[in-house]
Design a protein around this nucleic acid. Structure first.
Length: 257
DNA sequence: ATGGTTGCCTCGCAA
């Protein structure tokens, strides 16, 4: 069994005690982290390695930044999403571990939709689709996990009307997300829990956590060869209720060995 | 009701 988790930690430095406590309790084999908000030298590698994890990361000052932690070594890192060589935003890291190709994804937020940020988001999603297509041709198991900044459907949102004009829920965002799935990928949580209302993000503002005003935007997409091994997928709400929590909580899936 | 929360490390921006 391989336990793969994804978690947007909203600053690895601010979140370090929470992250270390959760790794110790949940014991995931592979962890995809997003929004590190630091460069390589600021990454708390000693503390992570002390828990038995190898790691790879791509950093950026103050914004973005993604990492992969694994109980086994990481091979063949790809530190950027192909298709825009001038793009300096640290939002993509792909490695091989446990014999599985995994990517940690921090998809652009895209707000406000009338700014240049929205076309950047859609173009980034098109690049991701092209990358997924190339990976599918390998016919090997892979998992693309992270903060997709997309609410796939109305049932993934406490109040769809409140999000109607948001870049996370606009039709073009959802269309592009479903185009990705339609390549033949399996969205692990929804595949195992059709119709279940569950969220992975609650805004810091307006007591959203206490009111359960959440959205489900953190996803793990599996290739057919990985989906055949999928035995469980869950959202672990407990870290969101801790002091100094990230606004996101981990999503975990288990693949048979 | 144009509010409110968090993190970065600037005096605003991004989420």
């Amino acid at each position: 069994m391989v336990k793969i988790a994804t978690w947007n930690v909203n600053s690895i430095k601010a979140r370090l005690p929470n992250v270390l406590a959760w790794l110790t309790a949940a014991e995931p084999d592979v962890v995809l982290l997003q929004e590190l908000k630091c460069q390589k030298e600021g990454f708390p590698r000693l503390e992570i390695e002390a828990l038995g994890y190898h790691y790879a990361m791509v950093g950026q000052k103050s914004y973005n930044g993604v990492a992969v932690l694994s109980k086994q070594p990481l091979e063949d890192p790809l530190a950027r999403l192909p298709g825009a060589e001038a793009d300096e935003q640290a939002r993509y890291l792909e490695v091989t571990t446990f014999g599985i190709r995994v990517a940690s994804i921090y998809l652009p937020n895209g707000n406000p939709p009338d700014s240049e940020k929205y076309p950047y988001k859609l173009a980034w999603m098109e690049r991701l689709r092209a990358r997924a297509q190339a990976l599918l041709a390998s016919e090997r198991p892979f998992a693309l996990g992270g903060d997709y900044n997309v609410i796939p459907a109305a049932e993934d949102c406490y109040d769809p009307a409140a999000w109607a004009d948001d870049a996370l829920f606009l039709p073009d965002s959802r269309r592009q997300f479903h185009a990705l799935l339609n390549l033949g990928l399996t969205e692990a949580f929804r595949a195992l829990h059709p119709g279940l209302r569950a969220y992975s993000y609650w805004d810091y503002q307006g007591a959203a956590w206490q009111a359960d005003h959440g959205i489900r935007i953190d996803h793990v997409l599996l290739s057919p060869q990985a989906a055949d091994r999928l035995v469980a997928c869950a959202i672990d709400k407990s870290p969101r209720g801790e002091p100094k929590a990230s606004d996101h909580t981990p999503v975990i899936c288990e693949l048979a060995a």
